[in-house]
Amino acid sequence: MALLEIRHMTHHFGGLRAVHDYNLSIEPGQVRGLIGPNGAGKTTIFNLITGIYRPSEGQILLDGAPIAGLAPYQIADRGLGRTFQDLRLWRHMTVLEHVKLAHYSKLRYGLFGAFFGTPARHREEDRITRRSMELLEMMNVAHLADQLVPNLPYGAQRRVEMARALATGPKVLFLDEPTAGMNPEELIQMMAIIRKVRQSLGLAIFLIEHRLKMVMELCDIIQTLVFGEVIAEGSPEEIQNNPAVIEAYLGKEIVE
């Protein structure tokens, strides 16, 4: 059985059909890519799977258990971590606080501990601080732990967001355009980090990307989405050579 399986997912916004009959099955350790022109519904698919919208039809199974209809925090807790295209960091919180907060559902000390500062709370807080620092080190931003996020350079903010997503303890990591707006140097760093995450944590990764070079290099299997429908699915080579994809999407990009 696949780690994450989606069957016949369809979604309408009012009368508008945003996603039609979407299927996906991700195995542990796999890197999947989702490409498509702007407005094809890529982010909508992410939002449907992670619970921000509830799909009109279809099934989403994580480890065989249905998760459609659960609240986003429940889905995140069960193992779908994500980043956002527009970052969505918390302006008044430090880098370390970001990563610590993503452990929220795993905290066991409860409100009593929070109010009265029990020893259990100190143990838990120390534990998640250590784990958060490890993640920050992995992302090469540990030296920024006490900084507020608006003070960081853009590339570092992206990596903080990645560390935060990893802190939720995901089985599948959803990356929504992780390199959007990055310069070439930051891009290379980010690719190295994604590889590192994959190797050291062995997660499945599902990523939306605009830069085809990156998708082609990183992904095992790629889906191409046009107007909410998958028009092609296959290995990078297959996608590159698929005429429908070239027509719908690659045609314009390659000229660029």
Partner: peptide
């Protein structure tokens, strides 16, 4: 604070 600064992100981070 997370709910204040970005509720959707807080939700996605298991809050």
């Amino acid at each position: 604070n997370a709910v204040r600064d970005d509720e959707m992100a807080a939700d996605a981070m298991t809050v």
